[in-house]
Design a protein around this nucleic acid. Structure first.
Length: 525
RNA sequence: GAGAGCGUAGCUCAGCAGGUAGAGCACCGCCCUUUUUAGGCGAUGGUCCCGGGUUCGAAUCCCGGCGCUCUCACCA
């Protein structure tokens, strides 16, 4: 069988419409296809004209390529080229046709291997059709294992099956010596067409495997400690639980504005009021903010709440959690990030918020008057805007003077009251709240507090937020009467924590941009 | 939201004192039954992001838009 032209040639080479002649739509579309795409469609038609279904329904694959390679020595064929048959399936990523035989590489999810296709082995007709197979086609191969003259573990094909014809070639990476061709490295293209990125740069699939492991390790850890996984609304009539601007949407049936959640905190605490003692949720939060390498407007957050616990107990739990997740995701507690290495297996450093600022500035900042605080901040080149209150200035100083230098895993605790509208006042100093943040390698990894359960105090905090809003602050916590009502019925002492899953994944997979750990990051369309 | 840079073949990129568009790889044809993402010979491939303007002539210069990247600001 020869690779004849298609039985019904596509109108590929027809001339452009003559002036004045109405263009025929289907022809027009074909005109717009590049030579490359047209040729693939011709091959598709040729396969069909020879009775091949280029999109069959299934394939009886018997082994992953990685498994086959792992047990290669014990399954090799004998000298007569007979041996146990295996069926692999994957994408063709390279082809070398040599007249009456051909080599190609086939890649599946977990590995890739060379396939040797001989005309006299699979038959003349099948070999002629095989010549229509291209890079990026999905194929099934049955054959026996052998090693080539040059020492590569390969599969000698006895049958090749088209599983899905690709009519648009992937830019499969090719390497010759030190030269790399076709590297698919443009960030925009990689994010926009993530499927190409994953297909062509299989190492990037590892990032998302790690991400999945991290999330399952979190569940494993919390489930084992009696936490209940719950789901709370993403569409909320009132947002809260964080200080951020929300996305707004319209609920047609109710004819009112709804918000995409910026946090699930207030709902999870309602559940603690309801009697669930340990709850957690891993969910998407949405914040109407800009995006950069640390922020995506839609991101994944873990929040967990435990009744009868305070922030110190949560701190101990968090330390174990980070250790467990690192161990599960990396197989070790040692984490390397952008050239720096820390060990999550060691006890975390625990240091007070104001002690860190004292280290950085040489001054005790707790309780000093606002004007003086501003002077000190300016003296350390911390940029201030006119409307910054005490909390924001302190936060800014922490962000610029301290956090970048926090490499070792650290818990910063005892935060100023003004920064934390949902945290309980400190048992030993009313100017502080019982709150901590875990940091490592310059990252802020989460936030935890002894949850405020005094309904009257909570109302005052909400009122303070309202005043900030009236003063023009767009990132305030609105008053949530139903939540206040829940607290009035009584919430036990509770410790709670939030951990940004995306950032944790960045850290554990050594990625410098959040977009590398989100499969489909937001891009302008 | 602000500043800087970028947008040319399927991919990665060159070309820019303005003169009909280039390379490598991929792709196509022929030869080749153990190659190393093969080899040899030959060919094809582009609305140079979009829209205006300057000019005899624009990928190149100017203006406007769109998109991306990197900084900065806000935030986790």
């Amino acid at each position: 069988m020869q690779s004849e032209p298609p039985a019904k040639p596509l109108p590929l080479h027809s001339a452009r419409p003559a002036p004045g002649e109405a263009p025929m739509t289907d022809q027009n579309e074909v005109h717009e296809l590049s030579e490359l795409l047209r040729l693939r469609r011709e091959k598709l038609a040729t396969l069909r004209s020879h009775g091949v279904n280029p999109y069959p329904y299934s394939f009886a694959k018997t082994i992953h390529i990685s498994e086959l390679l792992a047990q290669f020595d014990s399954i090799q064929e004998g000298e007569d080229h007979s041996g146990p048959e295996f069926a692999i399936a994957g994408r063709i990523v390279s082809v070398r046709i040599m007249g009456k035989a051909a080599f190609c590489h086939v890649r599946d999810e977990f590995g890739q291997m060379q396939v040797y296709v001989q005309r006299d082995r699979i038959g003349e007709a099948a070999f002629a059709l095989f010549k229509l197979f291209d890079i990026s086609d999905w194929v099934g191969i049955r054959g026996t294992a052998f090693v080539t003259k040059t020492g590569e573990q390969s599969l000698r094909a006895s049958e090749v099956v088209m599983l899905a014809k690709s009519v648009r070639p992937l830019p499969v990476v090719k390497q010759q010596g030190d030269e790399v061709f076709d590297a698919f490295s443009d960030k925009e293209s990689r994010y926009r067409q993530r499927y190409i990125d994953l297909a062509v740069n299989p190492e990037n699939r590892g990032i998302f495997r790690s991400r999945a492991k991290i999330i399952s390790a979190v569940r494993e850890f919390l489930d084992a400690r009696g936490y209940l996984e719950v789901e709370t609304p993403a569409l909320q009539p009132l947002y809260g639980g964080a200080l951020a601007r929300p996305f707004m949407t319209h609920y047609n049936a109710l004819d009112r504005t709804f918000y995409l959640r910026i946090a699930d905190e207030l709902y999870l605490k309602r559940l603690v009021v309801g009697g669930f003692e340990k709850v957690y949720e891993i969910c998407k939060d949405f914040r109407n903010e800009g995006m950069d390498r640390y922020h995506n407007p839609e991101f994944t957050m873990l929040e967990f709440y435990e009744a009868f616990a305070d922030f110190e107990m949560i701190m101990n739990l968090a330390e174990e959690l980070f250790r467990h997740v690192a161990q599960r995701a990396l197989g070790a507690t040692v984490v390397s990030y952008q050239g720096r290495t820390v060990d999550f297996g060691k006890p975390f450093r625990r240091v007070r918020f104001f002690d860190l600022l004292k280290e950085a500035t040489g001054k005790e900042l707790l309780g000093i008057p606002l004007p003086e605080l501003g002077e000190i901040a300016k003296a350390h080149d911390v940029e201030l805007t006119r409307e910054m209150g005490e909390g924001k200035i302190l936060d800014e100083m922490m962000k610029t003077l301290v956090r970048p230098k926090l490499v070792e895993p650290t818990f910063i605790y005892d935060y100023p009251l003004s920064l934390s509208p949902l945290a309980k006042k400190h048992r030993s100093d009313p100017r502080l709240v019982e709150r901590f943040q875990p940091c490592a390698l310059g990252f802020e990894l989460g936030n935890a507090v002894s949850e405020l359960n005094d309904p009257l105090d909570q109302r005052e905090r909400f009122e303070a937020q309202r005043k900030l809003k009236e003063a023009g602050d767009e990132e305030t916590q609105p008053i949530d009467e139903d939540f206040l009502s829940a607290l009035e019925y009584g919430m036990p002492p509770t410790g709670g924590m939030g951990i940004g899953i995306d950032r944790l994944t960045m850290l554990l997979t050594d990625q410098e941009s959040i977009r590398e750990v989100i499969l489909f990051p937001h891009l302008r369309s």
